[in-house]
Design a protein around this nucleic acid. Structure first.
Ligand SMILES: [Zn+2]
Ligand SMILES: [Zn+2]
Ligand SMILES: [Zn+2]
Ligand SMILES: [Zn+2]
Lengths: 132, 132
DNA sequence: TAACACTATGTAATAATATAACATTTACAA
DNA sequence: TTGTAAATGTTATATTATTACATAGTGTTA
């Protein structure tokens, strides 16, 4: 069973915002949106983001410096993440494909390196944008 | 055959620096290192970096905001990149594994999205750091 | 050659992203 | 209730990246 994390006040405010957003949110856009709730400084946002990433409630889309809520309770607490990103409309969604995650989690090569985490970002055109 | 790109003066200065570095370089560290060669402003660095990424001579390590020279002539001009990153010593190397690249290049799911590019970053401990 | 388009460069200012440092408060278990 | 870890508040600053505008080189074609 997954460990239950009781979010703190700031963490909850920021998670709720990200969770109900249809698109990845950037840190300063989050800051702007939560100022009416009393969160005034970048650091308050970044601290909450760090914690939320750490416990797997959100993920950072590295190529976009933006954050989305985890859609996939089986992504092993952020140790194995894969996303598809539309380069036209910037829609991002988390890929939940057990074959893919099994393949990558078990990946090993001759480097002698032990991989315990990965992040994969696919880019392309989503269905909508393809048909335009 | 790969298209031959004749690098411009700034592009060459910056590529040479990255190419001979054993570790990924950050933009402002590059800037600092090439100031004696007359490159004075961040934009000069970023423009060269953009071009070098575009033509596949270097790659950006997204999780580190840093750049390394391509070690893998078959990475299809930056359309299919995979890296291993040691979380202890921060050593980064490009993974060149034909099975992996074939698997990912052919990956498709039910989203209807056509993937034409990916970037994968593996994290773990390198041989050296593991044995410490 | 002259005209054109395209790529690259130079420079200043500024935007966007992220962290350091320090003081205080809250949660909660020993 | 005392100790400790986690979270918060605040200011300042560091790091990463882009906008805007002017100029110069490079190669192609009329
Ligand atoms: Zn997830
Ligand atoms: Zn799209
Ligand atoms: Zn490469
Ligand atoms: Zn290492």
């Amino acid at each position: 069973m997954e460990k239950q994390h009781n979010l703190s006040k700031n963490q909850k405010i920021i998670f709720d915002l990200i969770d109900k957003s249809p698109e990845p949110l950037k840190a300063y856009s989050i800051l702007f949106n939560v100022q009416k709730k009393g969160i005034k400084a970048p650091l308050q946002v970044y601290r909450a983001l760090d914690k939320l990433v750490e416990i797997g409630k959100i993920h950072k889309i590295e190529s976009r410096n933006a954050f989305i809520a985890c859609q996939n309770s089986s992504c092993q607490i952020s140790k194995a993440t894969a996303f598809s990103i539309c380069e036209s409309c910037e829609n991002v969604s988390e890929i939940s494909n057990s074959k893919l995650s099994k393949y990558l989690s078990n990946f090993a090569d001759e480097s002698g390196m032990k991989y315990n985490k990965y992040n994969l970002e696919f880019f392309g055109l989503c269905k909508k944008c393809k048909s335009k």
